[in-house]
Structures are given as C-alpha cells and as structure tokens.
Design a protein around this nucleic acid. Structure first.
Lengths: 123, 123
DNA sequence: GCCTGTCCTGGCCACCCGGCCAGTTTCGCA
DNA sequence: TGCGAAACTGGCCGGGTGGCCAGGACAGGC
C-alpha cells in the first residue's frame, strides 16, 4: 500500500516562451503521476520561466535593517515603524538611509522594489 | 533531423514541502529530455509551490494610471513622472490618488507592493 | 440633449521624507 | 585595552507627498 494513492500532482505552466512551453508540456504530459492543470484549476505547483531566486546574492543587511525593510514593504510610515520596533523616528530614518544606500535606491518605494527583485524580501 | 538537438531542459525545484519535492523529483528525473539542475546551475525554468499569478483578478486601472504606476515602481518621484508623461505634477498626484484608492494602499510604496502582489505590474 | 467617466490643471496646506550635522551606548574582535 | 561596527537618539531643513478644494476638455452611452 505504498502506492495506493499517488493522487496525481497537478502542475500549471507559466512560461512566456511558446517553444519552451510546448516542449515542457509535451514532456510532462507523458509522465504518469503528473497532470497539467486545466485553465483556472488549482495547481499544487507551477513551472515558471527563469529562476527567480536561484542566486539570492544576499546583500549584507543587518537584522534591524531587515526589520524596517519588512515594515516598509507593508506601507508603514517611519512613525509607524518606530512604534512597532519601540525606537525613535530618528533611528528609523537612520536605518532607512542605510537601506537606501545598500540597495542603491532613490527612495523607500525604490528600496522595496529592489529588495523584492533580489529576493531579499517576500512581497 | 527533427530531433537532432533537444538539448535537455534544465529544471530547478523550489518546493518547501519535502514530500511534494521528493515526489516531483522522482517523477521528473525519469523523464527523457529533462534534467534537474545541479545546485547553483542556471535553470531554464523553475518549479515553485502554489501558483503566484493564476488568478490575476485585474483591478480596473486606466491606461494613464498604469503609466503612472509603472514609473512609481521604478522609484520615480511625482516630478519625474510628470516630466516623463508630459503632464503637470498636479495631474500625477491626481492619478496617484486614484491608484491609492483603487489599490487600497496607504502610500505609493504600499501601492506598488499591492500591485506587484496582484500581478498588475511586473516588479 | 444630458450625464458619466477619463484625463487634465490649478491652489493650498499639513505632514512626511531624506540628508545633513552632531552625539551616545554596547558589543565583539584583534 | 583599544577600535570599529551596529544600534540608537537629537536638531535642522528643503523638498516631496497626499488630501482637500475648485475647474475645464473630450469621448461615449442613455
């Protein structure tokens, strides 16, 4: 009863390149235990082009910088971040300044965009 | 010579669930024409858990709002956006206000985060 | 016609943001 | 024991941001 279920893994394809998508679809459709998802069907996993996070290449961010970055990504203002972390607004600005420098961003919006692109934070 | 190349599609797995990852790895490793990527190897496609963008559920954004949103995501200030689109700063603020309302965001940073989450823009 | 939606513009104003200056404490490492 | 990195705090200030008020032009649907 080791193979009593094997309930078929439903995969969805999210490939822009038509040639690659076709080849993958052809290969995967012939695999027992796998099924490609119908349009709109809930899939257990998705095949996407490229690899988003294969080379995270972590920028050296301190723990505190990660804290304020996470709150920034949620749209929190400096004042809100200060309250959340029990620090002063000045300290928040200090960390934000370091983040803008390390992430090579021109503002907080650019900072979270860069961080999300590099996989530093999960949007 | 229709099958002279078929240079093997390299797939990488990004699955948190160990059981699902194992089953997928076992199934995919037996497929001719496919190969699982070695750690650090560049992959043509990646299998990720869930489907990030299966239901985009597009919010009704006007073309101009999409223009402003795209420039916002690049960290542009209102003044820069105004210059890019050849409109006044006041008009940019008007569209930004509409975006904050439609995206249910508290600020421009929150707006691009929400938009990226919903797949409205590609970060 | 009239009305709705989109796009555009202006002024005003409180607040926020980012950058500059300065300082303190605490920690680990040479 | 000195020394740098990290974290924290303060004041100051120019410019950016977001919300409010008001208006006009222009296309499409009733």
């Amino acid at each position: 009863m080791s193979e009593d279920k094997t309930p078929e893994i439903v995969l969805s394809l999210e490939i822009d390149d038509p040639a690659l998508a076709d080849r993958l679809a052809a290969l995967l459709s012939g695999v027992a235990g796998l099924r490609l998802a119908a349009p709109g069907e809930h899939a257990a996993a998705t095949v996407v082009a490229r690899d988003p996070r294969s080379m995270p290449e972590d920028i050296a961010l301190t723990q505190r910088e990660l804290d304020v970055l996470a709150l920034m990504a949620e749209g929190s203002s400096n004042k809100m971040i200060a309250r959340q972390l029990n620090i002063s607004v000045h300290t928040v600005k200090f960390h934000v300044g370091s983040l803008l420098d390390k992430l090579d961003a021109t503002g907080r919006t650019d900072a979270v965009a860069h961080a999300a692109r590099r996989g530093v934070i999960e949007l």
